[in-house]
Write a protein that binds this DNA or RNA. Structure first.
Length: 238
DNA sequence: TCATTAAATTGTT
DNA sequence: AACAATTTAATGA
C-alpha cells in the first residue's frame, strides 16, 4: 500500500475538459460558477493512494473525474470492509462536509484516477447561495439513500451472481455517476475487490449476466445492456 | 504507419 | 494459485 501521503500536496488546476466533467457546475448560474469554479483543484491518484482517511478533518468535497475509487472502513477486528466503489462522475463526502466533521470512511484509488476537490468553504458558500446546487445535493442524497437500502439487501444475499449484478447496477447509476455512461471501465480483478469475491467467481458471474443479455464483457470494462433488468436480477418476479 | 515486444487482462483448471 | 490465451499499449524503424 501507499505511504501515508494525502494527495493535497499534489493538487493542480483542472484542465478545461476535466472541468467540463464536473456534473454540478451545470446546475449553477454564471455568477455562482464564477464564484467557485476557480477553487476546484484536481490531483492524480495512483492505485492505493488515499484520497481521504477516517478521522481526518474534512477539507474538501471530492469527486471522481476519471478512474475508480473504493470506500471502506475498518471494523473492530481490524480488517477493512469495502462498502462501495466510486466511478467517474461521482461526488461524495457531502454529509461529512456539511456537518464539518471528520471523514468517516477511507477512500482509496483502485486504479490510477483523477480526483477533483472543492474546498469546504466553497461548498458551504454554494449551499448558502445557490438553489441549483441545493437541488443537486438533495437529489444526490436521495439517490444514495436508495442505494444504501439496496446495499443492505446485497449483504443478505450469498448468491454471487446476484451480488455482482446489484453491485454493477449501483456503479452504473446515471444520477450518482454520470461520467460512467454505457461503459464502465473496471477490470474483473477490481470488481472482485469491490464485491469481496474471487476473480474466478466474478468472471463466472459476469458470463452468466452476459448470457442473460444484461451486460457485455469487454477487455478492461463492461457495457450495460439493460440496467433495469440488471437491478432486478435474481428477484422472484424477474 | 506498421511490425515486434512487453504488459495487462481474461478464461480456465 | 497457477497457467494459457487474448487484447492492448509501447517501442522503434
Amino acid at each position: 500500500m501507499a505511504p501515508d501521503l494525502t494527495l493535497h500536496q499534489r493538487r493542480r488546476a483542472p484542465t478545461p475538459s476535466e472541468l467540463a466533467s464536473v456534473p454540478w457546475l451545470g446546475h449553477l448560474t454564471a455568477s455562482e460558477r464564477a464564484e467557485v469554479q476557480g477553487a476546484i483543484t484536481v490531483s492524480d491518484a495512483l492505485p492505493g493512494d488515499h484520497v481521504c482517511r477516517v478521522g481526518r478533518a474534512a477539507t474538501y468535497w471530492f469527486g471522481v473525474v476519471e478512474g475508480l475509487l473504493k470506500m471502506s472502513a475498518d471494523n473492530e477486528q481490524g480488517n477493512s470492509m469495502t462498502f462501495t466503489g466510486v466511478p467517474s462522475g461521482g461526488w461524495f463526502g457531502e454529509g461529512t462536509v456539511m456537518k464539518r466533521e471528520t471523514y468517516r470512511y477511507n477512500i482509496q484509488a483502485l486504479r490510477a484516477s483523477v480526483v477533483a476537490g472543492l474546498p469546504v468553504h466553497h461548498f458551504h458558500w454554494l449551499l448558502d447561495h445557490s438553489i441549483g446546487f441545493n437541488r443537486f445535493v438533495m437529489n444526490q442524497l436521495n439517490e444514495r439513500l436508495g442505494q444504501f437500502i439496496a446495499a443492505r439487501e446485497i449483504d443478505r444475499l450469498n448468491n454471487p451472481e446476484i451480488r455482482v449484478a446489484r453491485s454493477l447496477a449501483i456503479l452504473f447509476n446515471p444520477v450518482l455517476y454520470p461520467g460512467v455512461g454505457e461503459i464502465l471501465r473496471i477490470t474483473q480483478q477490481e470488481l472482485a475487490y469491490l464485491v469481496g469475491l474471487s476473480r474466478q467467481r466474478v468472471n463466472m458471474a459476469l458470463n452468466t449476466l452476459q448470457a442473460e443479455q444484461l451486460i457485455r464483457t469487454e477487455y478492461g470494462g463492461l457495457r450495460v445492456l439493460d440496467l433495469a433488468r440488471l437491478r432486478r436480477f435474481g428477484l422472484p418476479n424477474a
